[in-house]
Design a protein around this nucleic acid. Structure first.
Lengths: 225, 225
DNA sequence: CTGCGTACCTTTACACTGTACGGTCGATCT
DNA sequence: AGATCGACCGTACAGTGTAAAGGTACGCAG
């Protein structure tokens, strides 16, 4: 009376990997945020408690999701001829990954258990900088500065209350009526002359700041002991 | 049969301000995170639903909390003689505020309704940069870069899985036993030669990156149209 | 003084969350 | 054949945000 193998009451036994991929996919859906255990289980054709066979608790699952995001970032290689374009590529790739998975960035804090992909990522970055002639301390400075900027810029970008020109104009409207904008002359000026100009794209700021930082790093590279 | 005024069945009618201060105080308690509506109400000697008389919903309350954090940041003034030390002070003050209220930084994304203190802050920063000789575009670049770095650095700092030397050593121990550290030579080297050195303090990295950025800004100040 | 609106707070209820505890079923090993 | 084990399910519980409706006291119009 056993079920025929072809009937497949459960297609495949569920793995850490498949659960994580589903969780990331659900979190990526616009406006979704982290899925609940029950919703995630439903999506996988399973009941909630089944997930606890693969993850100690939800926190462990989230750690896995964050590590999966890190694994999408393009790594530099030790033998990259030139550290600067390598670091630039990595920064852009990292920002891309964080924008693809906007739920990830707010989770960085409070997540104190880095996964393997995360550690490999850090290792590769440091290796590239060392090969490029940075001292250990210099590589630490550079790493801290670059990653800080990447996270912070992306965090800011994601928290902008608009995504396109129409949103900006709507926002400006409601703000002008809601707040005493006479008190905020500089902010007003900047909105009128920058954000509200046709074709303005905040994303371009990323490269401007990044290049300024890279300039600074190459200037300090030999000074940093 | 009315209650004597001295009996005070309710000391004081609860204001947006008092609720926000209590909420921030609770969130600041180590390891607490955002309080639930019920816990916050208890602390105020009130039932949970009373809070909804002062805030539309929990999100609005959180917006207020974030704005309160911003109000603690030392503002530059238009007439600050020199933009550079003013920006430096502001950056340090901002990092301090975010470290005093570590729950705030993860909330920056998804919080798309800036409060008055936030807007005044932005206005003052832009004003200081403009007075320092930056063009509108230049001020926008500088603002984006500086704030990105401040947020990002602090986010990284708060997510470090240790707070003192003992924690670092404990962490290194468990990591070395848990992961194939032969695969991570550069990371290992950096931990051994930096993080594990006596007296190492990650907080010092903040000033190093900040000064590099300020150098870059003053170099670009006149070039940026 | 009466009566009514309005500000503030409470009660109750509902849908939803993470997860502890125990059970069930089939495959594999001895 | 029986034991063991991995994968999944059912049930239950404490805690969450908040909608709906009710109460109670004060300030002001008549």
């Amino acid at each position: 009376m056993t079920v025929e193998p072809g009937a497949a009451p459960r297609r495949t036994p569920l793995t850490k990997e498949s659960v994580l991929r589903a969780a990331v996919a659900m979190a990526d859906e616009p406006g979704a945020g982290l899925p609940s255990m029950r919703n995630l289980a439903d999506r996988l054709g399973v009941k909630a408690m089944a997930l606890y066979h693969h993850f100690k608790n939800k926190d462990a699952l989230i750690d896995g999701m964050v590590d999966l995001v890190f694994s999408e970032v393009e790594l530099p290689r030790d033998d990259d001829a030139d550290w600067r374009p390598a670091m630039r590529r990595r920064a852009v790739s990292m920002r891309d990954a964080l924008t693809r998975h906007p739920w990830a960035i707010g989770l960085m804090d409070s997540r104190t258990n880095p996964g393997l992909a995360t550690l490999h990522h850090h290792n590769a970055v440091i290796g590239c900088l060392r090969a490029g002639g940075f001292t250990i301390a210099g590589a630490a400075h550079s790493f801290s500065l670059l990653d800080g900027y990447i996270y912070g810029f992306t965090l800011q970008e994601l928290s902008l209350p608009f995504e396109n020109q129409a949103d900006i104009e709507g926002l400006a409207d409601t703000m002008f009526t809601q707040y005493p904008f006479g008190d905020l002359p500089h902010l007003t000026e900047m909105m009128l002359n920058q954000a509200l100009q046709p074709g303005y794209d905040y994303a371009e700021e990323f490269a401007i700041g990044l290049d300024l930082i890279l300039d600074g790093l190459s200037r300090k590279r030999e000074a940093w002991t």
